[in-house]
Amino acid sequence: MRIAALIVVGTVSALAGGNTLAADPQSGKAVFLRWCQGCHEALPGTGLDPPAGTYTLQQRYQDRLPAEIEKRTDLTAAQIKDLVRHGINVMTAFRKTEITDQQLDDLIAYLVKP
């Protein structure tokens, strides 16, 4: 028998919005995998339909920019913050109980290329 007792899923509770730590791209990758990858994975994706984000960006950019946001080199911190906190099209905003400000900073550190 296997019993997994009191396992906290995710890391939200450890990182409150006010406790700012240095942004960590590795933690940002974990945020990406947890919240973003489902819609922003590489085409053709692993679902029944193409991943919504990558497909939409491919249609929009027509190869002028990479459709996979992990491959983008032009993203800015302000853009990512705006998208995560306001959403766009069918992508919803994410609450601070889902992606804390610290985790958003980590995500930015992962996605914004120096």
């Binding site: 819609c39 679902g47 029944l48 339909d49 193409p50 991943p51 919504a52 984000g53 497909y55």
Partner: peptide, 12 residues
Amino acid sequence: KPPSIDFGELAL
């Protein structure tokens, strides 16, 4: 099929 964030149809 595992749970996923599968919005493809809606986006299309």
